[in-house]
Design a binder for these strands. Structure first.
Length: 368
DNA sequence: AAGGAATTCAACCGCACTTGT
DNA sequence: AACAAGTGCGGTTGAATTCCT
C-alpha cells in the first residue's frame, strides 16, 4: 500500500543509492533530460522505482543543488518564510536557490526548531512559548489577538501589533554567532590547487572568475562577489585519497569519482555560503517585514510583499525577467550540456550564486 | 575503548493534485 | 464524468554518524 504503481511490477532496490546507481541515473538524465520518471529506471538500467529516481535527482544529483551548512542568512530566511508559509517546504525552497525542500525540512526539524525553543519561541506558532501556553490555557481565545503572531527578525520578536521584543538572551548557543564566515580567497586558492584531482582546472576557475567579473561589471554592484565554485570545491576538498589516485582520464569515470566524492558531505560552512542577499538588502527586507508586521498581517499581502521583495533583491538585483532566463538556462542544462564531460557548469549558471565578501559578511554579523 | 543515547539526513510512504484518455 | 497514470509534497522512518558517559 502506498507504493507507487511502477514499484509493484518488479522487485526493486530500496535504501541508499550506490555510486554506480548515481552514475547511471546522472548519465541518463544528462543525456536524455528529465522526462517521464516512470520510464527512467528501465531506460537507465536501474532497479529502482521512478519516484525514487526523481527524488534522488532532485535532492542529490541535480547540478544546481547546493550542499553543506546553511548560512545565517539562509537560516533567518527560513524562519521568516516559515512564519509566513508554515510547513510548505517546497515553497520555502523556491526562495533558497540550490536548497531542496527535503534539506530545508530536515534543517528545520533538526536545528531551527531547537534553536527557537531555546529562545523561548514556539516553532509552530512563532510566538513566545509563554504566549502559546497562555493561548492554550485560554483556549486560544484572547491572548493571540492581543499580541498577534510573532515574527523573529534578528533576535527580535515582532508581533502583529508592531511591538518588538528584543531578547538579549537569544541565541544561547554562542557558536551560532561565532559561526565561521566564508573566506572566498582561501576557498579559491584551495580550488586552484586541486588540479591533481581532475576536478578543476585553473583555466576553468579563471574563466568562471572572469565571467563573474563581467557579471559584476554589467550590473555594477557595490561589492565584489567572488565566483561560486561550490561544486568544484566540494569535489576537490572531499576527494578521498583512494579516489584521488584512481581517477582515469575518461570523463565518465571522472564524473563517477566526482559523485563518490560528493557522497562525503561538505563539512565546513566555508564552501557553502552562497545566499547572496547583500547587507543593505537584508536590512531593507527586514525593514519591509517590520513594516508589514506593524501595519499589515494579511497573509496574502504579506506573501506578495515578500514575493516582490525577493523579485527585487534576489540574485543581487537581477531582475525577474533575467531570473526567468537564468532559470530556463538551468532547466535546459541537462539537454544542452550533456555533450560536455561530466559535471561542467557554465559560468552563467555559476554566477547565479555569487558570494558576498568576507568583510561584508563580518560587517553584517557585527551589526546583528 | 566500549556501548548506549542523541542527532542527522537520505529515502520511503501515503495522500492530493494534475494530466491524459 | 470517470478512471488511471504520473507527479509533487509533507510527514515519517531508520541507517549512519556523532556525542556522551
Amino acid at each position: 500500500m502506498g507504493r507507487h504503481s511502477c514499484c509493484l511490477t518488479q522487485k526493486l532496490r530500496k535504501g541508499l543509492w550506490s555510486p554506480e546507481e548515481d552514475e547511471k541515473l546522472f548519465n541518463y538524465i544528462t543525456t536524455f533530460g528529465v522526462g517521464c520518471w516512470s520510464s527512467v529506471p528501465k531506460q537507465a538500467g536501474l532497479q529502482r522505482c521512478g519516484k525514487s529516481c526523481r527524488l534522488r535527482w532532485i535532492n542529490y544529483l541535480r547540478p544546481d543543488v547546493k550542499r553543506g551548512m546553511f548560512s545565517q542568512e539562509e537560516e533567518d530566511l527560513i524562519v521568516n518564510l516559515h512564519q509566513l508559509l508554515g510547513n510548505r517546504w517546497a515553497q520555502i525552497a523556491t526562495k533558497l536557490p540550490g536548497r531542496t525542500d527535503n534539506e530545508i525540512k530536515n534543517f528545520w526539524n533538526s536545528c531551527i526548531k531547537k534553536k527557537l525553543k531555546q529562545q523561548g519561541i514556539d516553532p509552530n506558532t512563532h510566538m513566545p512559548l509563554s504566549e502559546t501556553k497562555e493561548c492554550c490555557n485560554e483556549n486560544l481565545q484572547t491572548s493571540s489577538t492581543e499580541m498577534g503572531q510573532a515574527m523573529v527578525i534578528n533576535n527580535s520578536t515582532v508581533f502583529r501589533n508592531g511591538l518588538i521584543r528584543t531578547d538579549q538572551a537569544h541565541y544561547p548557543d554562542e557558536d551560532f554567532m561565532n559561526k565561521q564566515v566564508f573566506d572566498p580567497f582561501s576557498s579559491f586558492e584551495s580550488q586552484m590547487g586541486s588540479d591533481q584531482t581532475g576536478c578543476t582546472s585553473k583555466s576553468r576557475i579563471l574563466s568562471q572568475y572572469h565571467s563573474e567579473q563581467n557579471y559584476r561589471d554589467n550590473y555594477e554592484f557595490g561589492f565584489s562577489p567572488m565566483p561560486n565554485l561550490t561544486y568544484n570545491c566540494d569535489h576537490s576538498n572531499n576527494m578521498t585519497d583512494s579516489m584521488a589516485t584512481d581517477i582515469s582520464e575518461s570523463s565518465s569515470s571522472r564524473m563517477s569519482n566526482l559523485f563518490l566524492s560528493e557522497t562525503k558531505e561538505c563539512s565546513g560552512s566555508s564552501s557553502c555560503n552562497v545566499l547572496n542577499i547583500q547587507d543593505n538588502e537584508l536590512h531593507m527586507m527586514d525593514n519591509n517585514m517590520m513594516e508589514n508586521s506593524a501595519f499589515s498581517w494579511d497573509i496574502t499581502e504579506e506573501t506578495n510583499k515578500l514575493e516582490s521583495t525577493f523579485q527585487e533583491f534576489q540574485f543581487n538585483g537581477v531582475k525577474s525577467e533575467e531570473l526567468e532566463e537564468e532559470e530556463m538556462k538551468i532547466n535546459s542544462w541537462e539537454v544542452e550540456d550533456h555533450t560536455q564531460h561530466g559535471r561542467s557548469y557554465s559560468s552563467e549558471n555559476l554566477v547565479n550564486f555569487p558570494l558576498t565578501s568576507l568583510s561584508e559578511d563580518l560587517e553584517y554579523f557585527e551589526q546583528i
